[in-house]
Simulated scan of single mutants.
Amino acid sequence: MAQTLARRELRLESPDMQAARAIPSQGAIGAGITIRNVVKNYGAFVAADRISLDIEPGEFITLLGPSGSGKTTLLNLLAGFQAPDAGEILVDGAPIQNVPTHRRGFGMVFQSYALFPNMTVAQNVAFPMRMAKMDRATSDRRVAETLEMMRLSDHAGKLPSQMSGGQQQRVAIARAIVMRPRVVLMDEPLSALDRRLRESIQIEIRELHQTIGSTILFVTHDQSEALTMSDRIAVMDAGHIVQIARPAEIYRRPQSRFVASFVGESNLIDAQVVGRDGRVLTLRTPGGQVFEAQSRHGVQDDRATVLVRPERITLHDAPVPGSMPATVTSALFLGEVLRIEVVLDDGQTLLIRCPDIAGRDLPAVGARLNVGWGAADSWVLS
């Protein structure tokens, strides 16, 4: 399987095209990508339902969504592994849906490292250069630069079996970018790594993107990866892009209940609208508690769903204006944060995450306290 993926990855650009195309200088930007009304069906199942997406040259876009949302299908359509049933895909304004995979000139990184086991790190990275018939001096220079970027210079003579999983994935990334492709496609490349290693390589990929300037399309179901690495996130569900925006906008101002629930932990409160003042609504919970929340366009209905992120809720030992009485149902010490669940007197359950502060004790289950938040800490979903 790994060897098959390696062959598929390394055929992305023919030797003739690789040799003919001069390698861009370091820092050159990538290609602009336009996806227009793309459809892909598998029998009765619609994997991509008239998807449209514009990606700026050199942008880092993450496709984020649950299994079956269409993110890998969209990546495969862009790579040329599958053909769309309708719509078109353009790179720098030129349609590519009829261009074979090996002529698109994209770099590819898979979850499987797909390294050649009998080649050293340097030989694995140099393989695309060798297939392109690059001269030895150019190849050696480019390989050395790329290994330095990926912090692999000290491992150039090792075989893949002598390296950790994280190091092997760095080699796979180095091989994908050694030709400085206009576009790099990454299909959940970090999912097999442990948490600490994932976080480390996330930062390295982000720094790499800023260095080489290729357009990157990154597929993941991990929300923390998407928030950490992306210029913009396209959240997908059931073959649609349901929201695309910068990470902070996706997290703080989701456009739907699905996005609010999928990206980050969330408290969703159903309440009655009792007042409006521009973008600020006054709402009342079923238990009669009144609070304020911000709204994007102004809600015309009498009822609304309000998002309050767990870290935006504050705890009070005694009642303060705008606070609500609650009972602790769960309290966990997680190191840097405390994770507390409470239930309001009207039965609404809230999750709270607050930093571990010296002198703050973990509340006991059954303890009574007060919780609150401001209008800027909550968001009315459209």
Rank of each mutant, 00 (worst) to 15 (best):
A2W: 03
L5T: 02
A6L: 10
L12S: 15
E13P: 03
S14Y: 07
S14R: 14
S14D: 11
D16C: 04
S25A: 15
G27L: 06
T34Q: 15
I35L: 14
I35E: 15
N37K: 13
N41A: 14
V46L: 10
D49N: 14
R50M: 10
R50Q: 15
I61A: 02
L75G: 11
N76G: 05
N76L: 04
G80M: 07
Q82E: 15
P84E: 11
D85L: 04
E88M: 04
I89G: 08
L90W: 08
A94W: 05
I96M: 02
V99A: 05
P100F: 09
R103P: 01
Q111K: 11
Y113D: 10
L115Q: 08
N124Q: 06
F127H: 06
F127P: 12
M129K: 11
M134T: 08
R136V: 14
R142K: 02
V143S: 03
E145L: 13
E148N: 06
E148S: 11
M149L: 02
R151L: 07
G157P: 02
G166R: 13
Q169K: 13
V171H: 14
I173K: 05
A174E: 12
A176P: 08
I177S: 09
R182I: 05
R182H: 12
R182C: 08
R182M: 09
V184D: 12
P189M: 10
D194R: 02
D194N: 04
L197M: 04
I201K: 00
Q202H: 07
E204K: 01
R206N: 08
L208N: 07
H209T: 04
T211C: 06
T211F: 04
T220C: 09
T220A: 08
H221K: 03
H221G: 08
D222R: 05
Q223D: 12
E225N: 08
S230W: 01
S230P: 00
D231S: 02
V235A: 01
M236F: 08
R246A: 15
P247R: 05
Y251W: 04
R252I: 01
S256D: 14
V259D: 11
E265F: 09
S266T: 01
N267D: 00
L268E: 11
I269Q: 05
D270E: 15
V274Y: 11
V274S: 12
R276Q: 14
L281F: 09
L283D: 10
L283K: 00
R284P: 00
T285Y: 06
Q289E: 12
V290F: 02
Q294K: 00
A304C: 03
V306H: 13
E311N: 04
L315E: 14
D317G: 15
A318R: 14
G322D: 14
T327Y: 09
S330I: 04
F333C: 07
G335S: 13
L338W: 04
L338R: 00
E341G: 01
D345L: 10
I352V: 00
I352N: 00
R360E: 09
R360G: 07
R360F: 09
A364E: 01
V365C: 07
G374P: 03
A375C: 07
S378N: 03
S378R: 00
L381P: 01
